[in-house]
Design a protein around this nucleic acid. Structure first.
Lengths: 257, 257
DNA sequence: CGTCAAATTGAATGGGGTCAAGCGGCGTGG
DNA sequence: CCACGCCGCTTGACCCCATTCAATTTGACG
């Protein structure tokens, strides 16, 4: 998303440029409406770069903003009191980070860049003080929150699976759905380490590794370090206990019929 | 909450009555501001009763509302494609249900009453169409969403624990924190079955039962069916791998320092 | 008192955690 | 340029804990 490097890290001053630069973005409509509603400061000049390993925010921070990932990838982690580090989510381009600060005003998790990334800040405090301006903007915001709620649900959905193989298959399936916007690419480059995957899935590091090789032995995927190619999408879905496909089925929590 | 039976299931017509009836409610401020902002229809006449076992909404429904639990208790479940039923959350008086419909407009989970309950509908579609009215109302709404996001986080936090004993201890601890507003009661009446608990914790029914009796043998709790009395709060917290207490510590995800 | 569902308890199996060793890439420094 | 060492990943072996199947007890309600 936002493949125009000349616009990165710089204010998007006018609406036409915004429309071109953000065309493939999932939040394009939101930004366009914000700009159209006379609130260009909500989307302009807020993009910032983040080097791999650095934190976007830490526990206790609270600038009153949420962030949209432009490129790269982030993880959100919660350090438990016994020292263990829980990975609560991965955030790919076009997705939100930082909604955890909405309740108390301060973040209760930490966001770390898994790769060199760029994020776009949405100042919620400004947006609240001046009102949403237009009802459509409020509706979009609500949808954003709903979408992240679904994200959280999908994490729970993964953690509820008893068998490690199911969790891993479902994880890969979800990642493929999120990383591949439309086209039929089945190539994934995992931005996170095996340990991060393990701590997201609630498994041991070794179990994840074993699960990957087992999937490879079964001819479902092809693993080379952090590069994963999905060979048999149908079988992957079957191992994740998902419905047989029906063209291109999304997450079970997203479909409603 | 809302201990005045004469106001139940009937419109709360004026502000003073609302203030008395909802005094102990966590959402009192929200409702009062809604009423004060000239939007009494947001809180009045929307209370409805629900018999135990009945559904507040099913997958696919979408009235554009979220609900506040007045009394009783609900659970939200997601039926997975393989027939298994995941319990995604329990909802006690003063808590929200149904935010899952915000993204798509249709619910992707089902809400079932665990006991005879009464809920208060908050018509989000109306609230969106007319705008929030006052900025304070929007801020409160955001806090509500943030709060439910924290709820979801705490579920993930539970599911990430490897040992069944930790999950059960943490579950009981969380439930005690939520069910006991202020006073020092350590008596809990679980509105849900052991099977519901198991499907919330990602464990087998029998494992939950064994965990309860083990906690009782250790002198931490006292179990009699669905009545649970917490004997040693400190030890319960220790078993849940929570910090030693520090007066009255909340969920680890709620504290930020 | 009888019936049924919920809950407890027991015994056996297996999957995943843990510990430990081996492998490969990559950057640093000699 | 190569060697070393570090780090991430893989693989192996063992053991424990949770699941599973099964039987029994308790409790609610007619």
């Amino acid at each position: 998303l936002w493949q125009h490097p000349e616009t990165m890290s710089r204010p998007i001053s006018d609406l036409s440029l915004l429309r071109r630069a953000c065309a493939p973005c999932t939040l394009r409509q939101f930004c366009q409406q914000a700009a159209g509603a006379g609130a260009p400061e909500l989307v302009a000049g807020k993009a910032q770069s983040l080097a791999r390993g650095n934190s976007l925010f830490r526990v206790g921070d609270g600038e009153g903003s949420v962030y949209i990932v432009r490129n790269g990838a982030l993880k959100t982690v919660a350090v438990t009191e016994d020292g263990a580090e829980h990975v609560l989510g991965f955030h790919l381009p076009g997705e939100l980070v930082g909604l955890d600060s909405l309740a108390t005003g301060a973040h209760c998790v930490e966001a770390v860049a898994l790769a060199d990334s760029q994020v776009c800040a949405v100042p919620m405090n400004v947006l609240l003080a001046r009102g949403t301006g237009t009802p459509a903007l409020g509706r979009d915001l609500l949808q954003l929150f709903g979408r992240t709620a679904l994200e959280s649900h999908s994490h729970v959905d993964v953690l509820m699976r008893r068998q490690a193989g199911e969790r891993i298959a479902l994880f890969l399936h979800n990642l493929l759905q999120r990383a591949r916007p439309v086209d039929g690419t089945t190539e994934l480059h995992l931005p996170m380490s095996r340990e991060d995957v393990a701590r997201y899935l609630g498994l041991a590091l070794e179990t994840v590794s074993r699960g990957f090789t087992k999937l490879q032995d079964e001819g479902v995927i092809l693993v080379a370090g952090r590069s994963v190619r999905i060979i048999d999408t149908a079988q992957l879905r079957q191992l994740a206990l998902l419905p047989p496909s029906e063209d291109e089925g999304g997450s079970p929590l997203e479909r409603h019929a």
